[in-house]
Every structure is written in structure tokens, then in C-alpha cells.
Nucleic acid binder design. Structure first.
Lengths: 160, 160
DNA sequence: TTACATTGTTAGTTAAGGCTAACTTTTTAA
DNA sequence: TTAAAAAGTTAGCCTTAACTAACAATGTAA
């Protein structure tokens, strides 16, 4: 029953979950806009997802997620956010690119890798002594292609 | 002319480039084995790639890459290696999983992100004072879910 | 040098997932 | 309250990329 969904189907589930957060009930046209596909593609996808027990969708009516659908959507979204944060916070990729890229990678990363990335971002941001020196140093390295001349900036001591 | 190749076509180019490094001339059967697809799929792919000017392939004969084919294959391989190294060296993903995962992600990462990842791995490994303390600290964090009790281990001083 | 195994190709099928065109249902505004 | 607009669906088509079955070429061993 819990068959693995394709990247495309995961995108539909994720989009529905996002739209559900607004006050409006979710409609085919909204999903279409959100994903940049035409409405017939949405109808088609919803039929498949309904068969798999992940959405409910009455003809010409509203779209909703089943419990299992919510579970998967949240999982995808979690992967998305983890990747986006990593790209943005650690690799200093600009916000829009990071979001785009997260959308593509979120479907191909293993659970383990996502876990590690998550811990990594955590490690980088919840440092007990403020932003760790190595992260400053990394940014310097991104910019200049070499380590800072005097080693880490002052905060490295704090991190130690 | 330089039309963007699909993930699948990139895989074929990459596989051919790998096989070319052995002493044997590259054959359809080898590509088939290397990618885990049947021979007709290979023939089909080679026809497309030949049309795009990326491989040459005489019927019932050897397979080779054109200059442009080599360029793309090397680019894919470079992405692959960068990702694999990051997963393996920084996130401590085991070797086989890292390779598998790199195969999937290599097709979806932007050039910028690959560059940053590359610099990151470089930053982490070519530290002027030996393995940086924060990397040890990161591994501790992976294992125990929290920063090391006494801050970085001794090598952090070295890094600073 | 012929018979058989291996290798490669062709033709046709399937599945996913997009699209357009045409039709139906629902909503809205005159 | 009815006509037009908007929203949704259906049907049919296209592309990618795999597959099997059947056929063709090549290589090898008796």
C-alpha cells in the first residue's frame, strides 16, 4: 500500500500541503498555478494519488490530503527545508536559488543524508558560543579561495 | 547544438567515459552491464547521443566519445566526485551509499552549488594546520547529538 | 568451415507525465 | 434567471526511456 511515490507525485502532495495552510480550500487551479503545470495534469495526478489513498478529491470540488498523504507531504517538506537551509546558511547560496535547488534535490536524497544535513545545519547554527569561527572562515574561503591569513577570526576561541 | 542532456543521457556519457579508461574498447554490452539496463536501451541511447554529436558508434562496432561528449562526461564526473567526497568526508556517509547517492544528485545540482561544495571539501581537508577541529567536533555531534563537552578537541588551536 | 554462442539491432509495448482541444460543470454578473 | 466566464474533466497526443521478442551480425570452437 505504501508504495514509493515519484518525484512528480511528491511535488503534488507537497504543493497541496502548502496550499492547505491558507484559509481558502484547495482547488485544482491553485495547484496548477503553484506547480506551473496545466490543469489537466493536475486532474490526472489527483486521480493517481486518490487511487493510492493519499488525497481525496470530489469531481469539480475541493482537494484534501488523507492522513497518509499528510505524512508524506510533511516528510517531503522536511527534506526540502533541510536542504534549503543547508544551501542557504552553510553554502551561502542566494535564497531563490536555494529554494529552486531544494525542490529538485528533495526527491533524491536518502533519509540518512537528510538526517546528517539536518544535524549539520543544527551544528552550524546552534553553536554553544555563538556563530562558530569555522563558518566565518568558510565564508572567507568562499570569497577569497584561501583560508584567512590569521587563521580563524576571534570567535574561534569562543567555539573552542 | 549544445542542448542540455537529460539525467539518463548524462549517465550514458559518464559510463562510456569510465569504461574508456580500461584497455578494452568500449562495447554496447559493457555499457549495458555498467548501467544495469538491457542492450536495446543502450543502442537507443547511443543513437540519440550520436545525433547530438556526442558519441560515435558504428553498427556492431565500438563506441567512442566526441570532444564535446568528453567535455560533458567529465563535467558530470566532476559533479559526481564533488558530491561523493562531500557526503563521504564531511557527512560521514559510508562509501557505497555516498556513491549511489552521488549518482542521483549529480544531475540536479546547479553549477554554483557544485562549486561551493567543492570549495567546502577543499576547505575541510586542506586545512593549513591539519584536520580542523570543527570537523572533529562535527563528527562528535553526529554521534552524540551535542557539541563536545570541552569545546573542540585540541586541534582546534591548530586551526586557529 | 560450418554450427553455435555471443553480441547487437529492430520493432513494438509500456508507463510516467506533460500537453492541447473540446466538452461539462459551476460561478458570477447583467 | 439566464448568459458568459471561470474552473474542471476527458480524450487523445507527444516524449522519454525503459522493456521483451525476434532477427541479424560477428566470433569461436569443433
Amino acid at each position: 500500500m505504501k508504495k514509493q511515490q515519484t518525484a512528480s507525485m511528491e511535488d503534488y502532495l507537497e504543493a497541496i500541503a502548502m496550499l492547505r495552510q491558507g484559509e481558502q480550500p484547495v482547488r485544482v487551479s491553485q495547484i496548477s498555478k503553484a506547480l506551473g503545470v496545466k490543469m489537466p495534469s493536475v486532474t490526472n495526478a489527483l486521480n493517481k494519488l486518490a487511487e493510492d489513498g493519499l488525497v481525496h478529491h470530489e469531481r469539480y470540488g475541493y482537494v484534501g490530503l488523507t492522513t497518509e498523504g499528510v505524512r508524506i507531504a510533511e516528510d517531503v517538506f522536511h527534506r526540502h527545508e533541510t536542504i534549503r537551509l543547508f544551501l542557504s546558511e552553510v553554502l551561502c547560496i542566494d535564497a531563490d536559488t536555494a529554494t529552486d535547488e531544494a525542490c529538485r534535490i528533495e526527491h533524491t536524497l536518502s533519509a540518512t543524508t537528510v538526517q546528517r544535513l539536518e544535524k549539520f545545519v543544527e551544528f552550524a547554527s546552534i553553536c554553544p558560543y555563538g556563530r562558530p569561527g569555522w563558518l566565518e572562515s568558510l565564508r572567507y574561503y568562499f570569497k577569497h579561495g584561501e583560508h584567512p591569513p590569521n587563521g580563524c577570526p576571534s570567535k574561534c576561541k569562543g567555539h573552542k
